[in-house]
Amino acid sequence: MTDGRSRPVIAVVGPTGTGKSDLAVELALTLDGEVVNTDAMQFYRGMDIGTAKLSLDERKGVPHHLLDILDVREEASVSAFQAAARAAIEDIHSRGKHAILAGGSGLYVRAVLDVLEFPGTDPAVRARLESEAESDGVGALARRLAEWDPVSAERLKDARRIIRALEVYEVTGKPFSAYMPRREYVQPTVQIGLDMDRSALHGRLAARVHRMVDAGLLDEVARLEGRGLREGKTASRALGYAQFLRVLDGDAEVEQACEQTIVATRQFARRQVTWFKADPRVQWFDALAPNVTEAALDLLGRSVS
């Protein structure tokens, strides 16, 4: 494969539970690569069991970047991640190695791979808009957005995104829709997608949630609750963590939280499939095929020796 600046970024994408992390490690071992995490919930220190974060043994000595970089109180930022991930890729490539992205957080993946500009923020403007939403209702803000940026108004329905779109318009004078990403890579890239039969995936996801519970997910949530999990706008909404916080509150039994997590995880996987299938550049592979690693290496112009 080509060295230097033209060395392609490799991204392993697809729905949760398909083995992206494991494939990334195998590719890294064969290609002399390093992994860059693109699972937004694996940014958080201590969120290990519920995010299916690979253990040190499972990483097989492959360096992993952008794992455990945030406290559970901190809010994940796509723009900050974009800068950090691109810097990690540049560093990996500068050392003659392959950068292999692994994770299914679609917007974060696109922020790294594609031309995507993030408009600035203004805390004072945002605070005022949030105050207006509380006093006048989000409907009034939605009507204002429809006047200023009808494209975004059609797409955005929740209060947080409507406020952000209005903030961008006030700060930059340009509609939020003008900043929508284009399917244009910033550097050579190969996207490898993993998927499988729906019933098989559903079975795997259910089994994984049960393993998480058996491995101590509730205890992990309790420890993180003591470190401010509830205060984290991003971390507190993570699959499994939101459901098991209700167990700590006495509002659900473990069995209920387990089933709710399974349902929510299946719904999340469906959204991931929709997101990644919409990108015609992704090359798809059956995650259950016995030769999936070899097939991916063939795509990359390499073969297992």
Results as ranks from 00 to 15, higher is better:
residue 53 K to N: 02
residue 80 A to M: 08
residue 224 L to N: 01
residue 233 K to N: 08
residue 273 V to T: 15
residue 292 V to P: 00
residue 72 V to I: 07
residue 148 W to H: 03
residue 226 G to S: 04
residue 299 L to E: 11
residue 225 E to N: 14
residue 170 E to F: 04
residue 190 V to K: 13
residue 140 A to L: 07
residue 228 G to E: 12
residue 185 Y to R: 13
residue 242 A to L: 10
residue 304 V to I: 12
residue 246 R to N: 13
residue 5 R to E: 15
residue 256 Q to V: 06
residue 227 R to F: 05
residue 158 D to I: 04
residue 108 Y to C: 03
residue 238 A to F: 00
residue 174 K to M: 09
residue 222 A to M: 02
residue 265 T to G: 06
residue 282 V to F: 12
residue 205 L to G: 03
residue 247 V to C: 08
residue 134 E to H: 08
residue 248 L to S: 06
residue 37 N to G: 07
residue 25 V to R: 12
residue 13 V to C: 05
residue 282 V to K: 07
residue 191 Q to D: 06
residue 169 Y to G: 10
residue 47 M to S: 12
residue 153 A to W: 12
residue 216 G to H: 04
residue 248 L to V: 11
residue 229 L to P: 05
residue 302 R to I: 13
residue 256 Q to F: 02
residue 121 T to Y: 03
residue 135 S to L: 12
residue 261 T to A: 07
residue 67 L to R: 13
residue 207 A to G: 11
residue 95 R to K: 13
residue 263 V to N: 04
residue 108 Y to N: 01
residue 97 K to Y: 06
residue 272 Q to P: 03
residue 84 A to Q: 14
residue 162 I to Q: 01
residue 11 A to L: 04
residue 76 A to P: 02
residue 164 R to Y: 01
residue 187 Q to S: 15
residue 225 E to T: 14
residue 64 H to R: 04
residue 225 E to M: 12
residue 56 L to E: 15
residue 134 E to W: 03
residue 268 F to I: 02
residue 168 V to G: 00
residue 239 L to Q: 09
residue 72 V to D: 09
residue 203 G to E: 14
residue 216 G to A: 08
residue 287 A to L: 06
residue 255 E to N: 02
residue 7 R to C: 10
residue 210 H to A: 10
residue 287 A to K: 02
residue 175 P to R: 04
residue 278 A to W: 09
residue 209 V to M: 02
residue 293 T to V: 15
residue 299 L to F: 02
residue 261 T to P: 01
residue 224 L to E: 04
residue 124 A to Q: 14
residue 190 V to L: 10
residue 47 M to D: 13
residue 26 E to P: 00
residue 297 L to V: 13
residue 236 S to M: 08
residue 33 G to D: 06
residue 249 D to I: 03
residue 208 R to L: 06
residue 79 S to Y: 06
residue 147 E to K: 08
residue 43 F to I: 03
residue 87 A to N: 09
residue 103 G to F: 12
residue 20 K to A: 05
residue 60 K to C: 15
residue 162 I to G: 07
residue 194 L to T: 00
residue 47 M to L: 15
residue 52 A to D: 10
residue 280 P to A: 08
residue 206 A to Y: 00
residue 214 D to G: 13
residue 170 E to N: 05
residue 245 L to N: 04
residue 183 R to E: 12
residue 16 T to V: 13
residue 230 R to I: 10
residue 221 V to P: 00
residue 37 N to E: 07
residue 57 D to A: 15
residue 108 Y to M: 06
residue 53 K to I: 01
residue 183 R to I: 09
residue 263 V to M: 09
residue 246 R to K: 14
residue 288 L to I: 08
residue 58 E to Q: 13
residue 131 S to C: 08
residue 275 W to C: 00
residue 96 G to D: 03
residue 103 G to Q: 08
residue 57 D to R: 14
residue 191 Q to I: 07
residue 49 I to Q: 03
residue 290 P to M: 01
residue 170 E to Y: 11
residue 214 D to M: 10
residue 262 I to F: 04
residue 37 N to Q: 11
residue 108 Y to Q: 01
residue 259 E to P: 05
residue 55 S to P: 03
residue 86 R to H: 05
residue 50 G to E: 05
residue 219 D to R: 12
residue 32 D to C: 09
residue 30 T to Q: 12
residue 80 A to S: 10
residue 303 S to F: 06
residue 222 A to G: 01
residue 49 I to N: 00
residue 105 S to G: 09
residue 22 D to I: 11
residue 239 L to H: 07
residue 300 L to G: 08
residue 67 L to T: 15
residue 278 A to N: 11
residue 202 H to P: 09
residue 294 E to S: 15
residue 243 Q to Y: 01
residue 305 S to K: 15
